[in-house]
Amino acid sequence: MDEQDINIKSLISPINDETVPFGFENKVLEKIKREVALRESRKETIQNLLIVVLAAALFSGALLLINYYYFNISISFSFNVLDITESIKGVTELFKSKESLIWIGIGANIAILLLCERIISERLNKKVTD
């Protein structure tokens, strides 16, 4: 630094304000905590999305396999309107078969059991809080 620099430096020093406001460090730590929570929540959302996509892919794969080995319904993607009605007819026939009715029955039973379990647990919780 030359003489000019020293002179400028001495004149600039009054402009230097190094005061730290009260609670500055705490505000920084609070911001960090909020950011950590936000990043955790984003990570969880992404994980959940990936699980849903994977589950959907597995489910679709399972359905295709079942169709291939069991029902043998040909699925074509032509855009002919008349073919759509044929496809709907094919799908309804699928649900009318004996085996399908058994699976529908099993599924409906599970749904009813889950509903009952939900109702009972809510009533029990209500009793406990009362």
Binding site: E18, T19, V20, F24, E25, V28, L29
Partner: peptide, 11 residues
């Protein structure tokens, strides 16, 4: 670290 560097950073 925040306490040590905050005066200069604020300045």
């Amino acid at each position: 670290l925040v306490s040590h560097h905050s005066p200069k950073i604020l300045s």
